[in-house]
Structure formats: structure tokens, C-alpha cells
Design a protein around this nucleic acid. Structure first.
Lengths: 153, 153
DNA sequence: TTAACTGCAAAGCCTTTGCAACACG
DNA sequence: CGTGTTGCAAAGGCTTTGCAGTTAA
């Protein structure tokens, strides 16, 4: 996960203009929150993001994390992932993709769209329904868990 | 949705033995909760279920609904559906199936497994991951909503 | 009869909101 | 400078828990 200063500057510039396009101020907090979310494939919860951001901005509050997550969702900079968890999980990967979910530890891995043969419907949909997109969730067990193995804490 | 007394008796018997198999007492509350959940394809929330059950058992408490939902989930009589909502949605349809989700009003419709051509992976999975099942969520707009149309309350 | 279940009320999360001080543009 | 943003604290939902009384088997 090495990243040099130049790359970071470029990303910050890109983020700054994406904010500008939407009339959002580019604050230090926003940049750190976004950089951390976009820098992980872990689909972090607000709480996990808070913990990470706090390492850089100890004074940040959880409310700011929540407010900005909402702002980013509205702006289309983040997406919410559906999981059986009772807490929100976020995804900064805006490309169309699918998910691999470990039934034991809950870990979610992304699968690129082109790893899956396009899904077809064999039968007509209920009348009037128009499909815009679809998402496949594969449920199974990751290497660390394996079926029958208890979830590690 | 007509159902005669005989059919109901049969279902109740079936439910009673399913409870017995798992060492669960067959209470009036449990039967009504289960019957109502199994009698709808609407993937009800605990609150919606509470409202329905209350019509028959006005004294029931929301805590009893929650406790029994948990009991049924553990017993495998219900499943939890993943949605972008922040509230739990339940499904008494235990057959393998897929979902059609209206992006506007949030309604979820079931699609039988055999309406979808089996999904294939073109590329290998991350090392060690074993897939047990998968679920396809189609996102779109139902007949009542249509894109661009405001969600009705 | 006895273990399990119910209903109530209180507590526990996660998330949102109101407001004064502060920062971006 | 003015609007938008932050941090704090309090409030709001949804869900869980503890307990005394009740019920199924």
C-alpha cells in the first residue's frame, strides 16, 4: 500500500475538484475521511472509519464521520453495501462489481464485474418492472474460516 | 388470499411439529407471528409484523416479536434479507430465490431460482474461498414507480 | 410440575440533530 | 466576509435484556 507524495497530491486535487463540482467545501476532515475509505477494500463501517481517521485527526467527532458519509452518499462518491449486519457498510469502489461474503467472519471481498458471466432471466419479470442493474452476492467461507470452523473473535 | 379452516389446521399442525423437532413450545403468539410472516411475500419488518399480529393479539408486545424473530432465525424457520434499509427484513420463503428491488419505493419481490440462468464465474476466486450459494439482487423500478417518478409515501 | 415463554420497562446500540464556534472560498 | 462545516451533547430509532408472572407439555 505504498503511495508517494506526488500520487497523494494528485488524488487530493482530483478530490478537490469533485467537491467543487458539487458545491462542497474541501475540508481537511473530508479529505482524510474520503482518502481512508477509498484506500481500503474492506467496506468499512462508520465506526471503523472513525477509528482510522482519528489516528490522523484525534479531535474529529463521530458525528462528523456520519455527516460526511451522508454527504458523500448523496454526492455519489460512496455507495452503501447491503449486508446482514445491523450496521452500515460503505464502498468507495464505484465500478460495477459483485461481492463474496464469508458466512463465518462476515468479510466482504469485491469481485470485478467481468469475473461473472452476465446474468440472464429465463422468464418474464412481473409486469411493469424495469431492471437497471443487478448485483450477485456469493456466500461461502473464506480461507481463514472454512465450513465447520468457528468464527474467530 | 382465501384459506379455509382445514388448510389452516394442517399448517398449524405442521408448525407444531416443526417447533417440537427443535424443542420449542408452540404458543399462540408464535403461531400467529409465524403464520403472518409466512403468509406474505412482503419481507416484513418487525414493526410491520407487530402491527399485523396486534390485530389478532392486541396485548402482544414488540419485545415478543423480536424474541421470536430471533428464535425463528436460529431455528432456520426464517431468513434475514439484506437491504439498504436500516431495519431488519424477514423472509419465510426458505426456497432458494432471488430478489427484485424497487430503487424508488423499496419494495422487494421474489424471483424463483429457476427464473435466472445459473450464474457462472469466468475467473478463479480468491485463494481458499469456497462458495456455498449465491443470490442475485436486481435493482430497478416497479410498475408504480418508474424512473423519475417520486416515491409515493 | 417445571422449564420455557410473555409482557413490561429499562437499557443499549447506532445514527441523527441543534447549536455555537470555526474554516473554506 | 458569508455560507458551509465542525464538534459537542442531547435526542431519536431500532433492538436487546432483566425480571416477575403465566403457560405449554
Amino acid at each position: 500500500m505504498m503511495m508517494n507524495q506526488q500520487t497523494l497530491d494528485l488524488r487530493m486535487k482530483a478530490f478537490r475538484s469533485r467537491c467543487a463540482e458539487r458545491g462542497l467545501a474541501m475540508t481537511h476532515q473530508r479529505w482524510v475521511i474520503y482518502r481512508i475509505m477509498a484506500g481500503t477494500a474492506q467496506h468499512p463501517t462508520p465506526e471503523e472509519t472513525f477509528a482510522q481517521v482519528r489516528k490522523e485527526i484525534p479531535s474529529i467527532s463521530l458525528a462528523t464521520i456520519y455527516k460526511n458519509i451522508k454527504t458523500f452518499l448523496d454526492a455519489g462518491l460512496l455507495r452503501e453495501v447491503s449486508t446482514p449486519d445491523q450496521t452500515m457498510r460503505l464502498d468507495a469502489n464505484l465500478e460495477s462489481h459483485h461481492h463474496l461474503i464469508c458466512a463465518s467472519c462476515g468479510k466482504i471481498l469485491d469481485i470485478p464485474e467481468d469475473s461473472v458471466v452476465p446474468v440472464h432471466l429465463k422468464k418474464p419479470l412481473p409486469k411493469g418492472f424495469r431492471v437497471e442493474s443487478y448485483n450477485v452476492s456469493f456466500l461461502g467461507f473464506c480461507g481463514q474460516c472454512g465450513p465447520g470452523v468457528q468464527a474467530s473473535t
